[in-house]
Design a protein around this nucleic acid. Sequence first.
RNA 1: GCGGGGGUUGCCGAGCCAGGUAAAAGGCGGCGGACUCAAGAUCCGCUGGCGUAGGCCUGCGUGGGUUCGAAUCCCACCCCCCGCACCA
Length: 964
Amino acid sequence: MSKLINFEELEKKWIKLWRENGIFEADPNDKSKIFVTFPFPYMNGPLHLGHAFTALRVDVYARLKRMQGFNVLFPWAWHWTGATIAGQAKRIAEHDEHVIKVLVEIDGVNPREVEKFIDPIYMAKYYTNENKSVVDGLGFSVDWRREFHTTSHHKAFSKFIEWQYLKLREKGYIVKGTHPIVWCPRCKSPTGDHDRLEGVGVSPEKYILMKFKCGDLILPAATFRPETIYGVTNLWLNPNVDYLIVHVDGEKWVLSKPAAEKISNQLKKVEYIGELKGRELIGKKCIAPVVGREVIILPAFFVDPNNGTGVVYSVPAHAPYDWIALKDLLDHPELLSSYEISRDEIERIKPISLIEVEGFGEFPAIEIVEKLKVRDQNDPKVEEATQIIYKREFHKGVLKSIYGKYAGLKVFEAKDKIIEEFLSKGCADIMYDLTQKVICRCGTPCIVKVLKDQWFLKYSDKEWKQLAKSALKNMKIYPEDARKNFEEVIDWLQDKACTRATGLGTPLPWDEKWLVETLSDSTIYMAFYTISKYVNDGRISPEKLTPELLDYIFLGKGDSKSISKSHGLPLNLINEMRSEFDYWYPVDLRVSAKELLPNHLTFFIFHHVAIFPPEKWPKAIGVNGMLMIEGKPMSKSKGIFITLKNAIKMFGADVIRGTLLLSAEDLDDPDWRNKNAEDFRRNLKSIFNFMLELKKRAMSEKISELREIDRWLISQINKKIKTITKNAEQLKTRTAFHEAFYGIWNDVKWYLRRVEKVNGDLIADILNIWVKLLAPFIPFTAEELWEKLGNKPFVSTASWPNYDEKKIDLRSDFSEKLIKNLLEDILKIRKAIKINPSRIYLYVAPAWKYDVYIEVAKLVSQKASLKEIVRHVISKFHAKYSRRELIKLVQYSFEDIVNSPPVERKLKIESVSRELEIYESAKDFLERELKIKVSVYRADQPEIYDPKRKANSAMPFRPGIYIE
RNA sequence: GCGGGGGUUGCCGAGCCAGGUAAAAGGCGGCGGACUCAAGAUCCGCUGGCGUAGGCCUGCGUGGGUUCGAAUCCCACCCCCCGCACCA
């Protein structure tokens, strides 16, 4: 038996044939177009199963639309922009063992190649090459003539990005700004989460510095809660810490040494004047800002020079640290006396209540300290107490009358206003700091740096947001649930830095020391696909892609004749490019994983609405889950990672495609399990052989008439075409493929059980339809079957089956359902009675029971209650039939009708006269299945064989059954 | 903290928006049977519990509620996952 199929060979064969015939190369023509895109993958590593999952959904859609007769363009490109590739190259140059190990062991790069990766461009090219063959290997229906990569290493693409940025600037969407970031002083670059050894998730926090005056010195106390200044009772300094006196903005500030260093990175000029020990100021008095009170400076050891300014003010009513530190002083009189502070002075300090908060009394800090039994200021529980109070007061706290115009407001409502007021009065300042340690990958502790004159995309712009929203409104989002996410992100988005100092990319056209960053040069590049073909075939050279020409191509602005003249380009070329763009644009579908939703996909919308007119705005976005492997999130460092190259080697393309497609849809995370892939491989082989066997039968078994069961199969296949098409069009790829693969298979299997001889012509048709329905999902297997079924040239370009609503035959569906129910009942009984039956007798309900049934159905449709129906039926029929029988029948009928969907209710009423005939026609089948004789009677027929009086139990659509 | 998504029978995963067709699709696994010298593949049946007649009981995170009827609607609670920006 030739049961072996070799997927590897078969896949190679079809890739070659598809390419040779250029069936995925798409140029403008007079057909309707569909333009689909997948976000270009980043070339710092091999493509993996996660890429495959998302791209597969694009490919399925592309293949479906192509078969539906659309002119479909699915192009591909490669992302090189950013610091990651360069960073990786640098680490290889530094012989970073971990990086090299991952490259060799996980990514499968030959160690001799790795050495060459010290050149980032070499690395990017290497992966681009590798990955291209993988994209082909999976059968993605890509038009490669439009391929490109990003950055200044692709002159034409750079020209496009320059144009994009000039447009954005013209529209006023690019602004200069200042922003605090986590910074590595050694690498002299921002340190993002992925670049950290320690402190992942930590971001700059804004401290407010409240300026206390002490003679000519300013003591800037750092706080997150400047609104509590009204409750200040004293100032804290750490007596053991060295402080610096520095010139800042014309004032003399006292700061801890680290604080002075930090502030110097935050756009403040810091000049050294002198030094002093904390103890030197202890016991002195200073004037608190805002309230103008004189307060004493006291010693506290919780004050950390590395945190904030090393100066802290005290609000014992609302800050556990402050309250416990005061208590510590009272508990240690020796400390007080060493600073010559009288105990009296401390005892005179009374907490001032400022904020009313549910669940606490006057002084929340005191209460929580007592409740948690905090020992002293070194007890870790102080931190916990602080967190509890801070959160509670921030969200639920209400300001008391001491706040004047702010009184009655919630803390979170008033906070920003209060800060604004303090800053404008000059009694406060700002400093950024990290509340937890952050260590750069290079081992250096990070600080906060305020970068000035950075370029920002003004995502905060109200009008821009409005445009983005109106684009969203007209867009299809698959699944619809994800729309909420987009709305939320658009609202929430703030200005975003759009340039970088390091890495690969396109220089900003008007400020070339900056590179356009990676989430900006990936937003409207799909437009470039429409003309990259002309660059690749040499019909236009990159330097000719001036802003003027691009304005004409993409926006229709300017005059082609004069551009032709000034650029030395043929007029028809310019017009062809313009009309090619005009033909393909807008993007009809873009798909990505949900991780890109709050950034890339949203920016994709923003940039389109900024630059293009509404008719060129994207039509649809698909979002999917993130791939898991064996139930765990992918992670290269943990070795939870499968490259596509390996996966193809292990399973072949169609097995990967099928397994991925069946694993999830919508926002659910697909979970790749090798075992599932193996199971699917078995099924794929089975279905392949099944169809070929069936083809053989179809050729030898001919039947001239169309039997009921044949009509049933036609009905089923039409239903399947309908659901598969509908689901695939909405990117419900799992459901669609499941129906195409298992759904049809089960129908056909049932059909084969039901008949002794197949209707050959019908089966031949069904097989062709079935292969077409499988083609978008598992194209290689489908092509091979298509050929073996005697078709040519390609199923990939064959026309998608149309369903015929008229062929969806509810009547035969219903008959078949009755037969299935009957078989099920017989098997249930057989199981329960545990005997070996010799013969089966069936009794279809007598005519009068149908009369009652119809009567009940009528009353149900009038929304009568069961009670009413019983009463009505008894009054109508009791003369002829017993009350008990009637009640039983009404109860059965009522339940049966209520539990049927509306279409079926109608069918049932129409089928009352057919029931006997249906079972008669299935008699042979039942006998074959059960391997015993079956007799069918009508219960009211005279002289029937019915020893156990089972005919009495016959109900409409539920025959009496007697098993002997 | 803010925002989003979830918890379903051995596993994966439908159903939930529009309550009744539902012991709850489908796949996987397990068990039994057919085929075979045998194994594999394939096909059929079973796969919550009980039951010598198509039935009964229990059941969809937990606890309440609405309803003739709830996995589906309402309320409260518990738990899990994802994103939150200078990474791509």
